[in-house]
């Protein structure tokens, strides 16, 4: 009986196997496989909580697979996982986490702690190491959520092996992230105020500018497509829950404070 409230364990007992690299692919270098990959994601603290944003492009080698990908995924009412890497694996991880947190809450009659949620992400990444190294399933997520024990929204990022690091002010991942990591450091250190003091609107504007910059230098990052009214996904996490910024708000902020500078 599932007294431990461990959903992944239950799935395994029922014959499910998460992340098994196909043996034929092990010898292939990652580049040759040309698998679909996701691109620039960022999370940063702002005055009321944490902002998580991601562009919407998925690429396979030089080809654009899709320009409407959602890489910022809600796992429950207070946590979000932003994904960079192989979407097939990442979406499966999100599905497992979503069901795991619900299953824990419903069986144990209490929410899984924030620390417990972080461990669950790390465990999945650890299970995925073989596929990640074979080049078929590397995922480098950013996990953000509201920690009720500490009374604060928090950001964590991981490497492909499952090591977990706290992003005290911000965290980035994906192929476009080196570009904006430097900008975030600069903004946080030498602006008139640190990122964590930004009001909501300013934080959203910065996120749009950062993703636009990433798209400028990284062909695998989508940026904004005004013709198609395609904007990045921007979610805000506060004590009250998760709020998705509607596209029309992103559009007007983009027109007013981002577009004129590019």
């Amino acid at each position: 009986m599932g007294m431990e409230g461990d959903f992944l364990q239950l799935l395994k007992e029922r014959g499910y196997q998460f992340s098994a690299p196909a043996s034929g692919l092990e010898a292939q270098p990652a580049e040759a496989a040309e698998i679909t990959k996701g691109t620039t994601i960022l999370a940063m603290k702002y005055r009321d909580g944490v902002l998580v944003a991601g562009d919407r492009r998925a690429t396979a080698g030089n080809m654009v697979m899709y320009d409407r990908t959602d890489k910022v995924l809600e796992i429950d009412r207070h946590s979000v996982m932003a994904i960079a890497g192989v979407p097939a694996t990442a979406y499966e991880m999100v599905r497992i986490l979503e069901h795991s947190f619900k299953y824990y809450r419903r069986t144990q009659l209490q929410e899984l702690s924030f620390e417990g949620k972080l461990r669950a992400v790390a465990k999945l990444l650890k299970d995925n190491v073989a596929a990640a190294l074979a080049g078929t399933g590397a995922v480098v997520p950013v996990f953000a959520g509201y920690d009720f024990e500490q009374g604060a929204a928090k950001i964590y990022f991981y490497d492909i092996l499952g090591a977990e690091f706290e992003g005290v002010e911000y965290a980035v991942s994906g192929s476009g992230s080196p570009t904006i990591r430097g900008i975030l450091h600069y903004l946080n250190t030498w602006s008139d105020r640190p990122l964590s003091a930004l009001p909501e609107e300013d934080a959203i504007v910065q996120a749009l500018r950062l993703l636009t910059s990433a798209a400028e230098f990284d062909s695998a990052t989508g940026g904004v497509n005004r013709d198609l009214n395609l904007y990045p996904i921007v979610k805000l996490i506060t004590e009250a829950g998760i709020q998705t910024t509607p596209a029309n708000r992103l559009q007007s902020l983009f027109e007013a404070k981002v577009a004129r500078h590019v």
């Binding site: 009986m1 599932g2 007294m3 959903f7 239950l10 799935l11 029922r14 499910y16 599905r95 497992i96 069901h99 619900k102 299953y103 419903r106 069986t107």
Partner: peptide, 17 residues
Amino acid sequence: EKLRFNLLEMAHVEGFN
């Protein structure tokens, strides 16, 4: 409790698969 766990297992495995 026993039957509640049965239901929870059934529902979550089905919902996932």
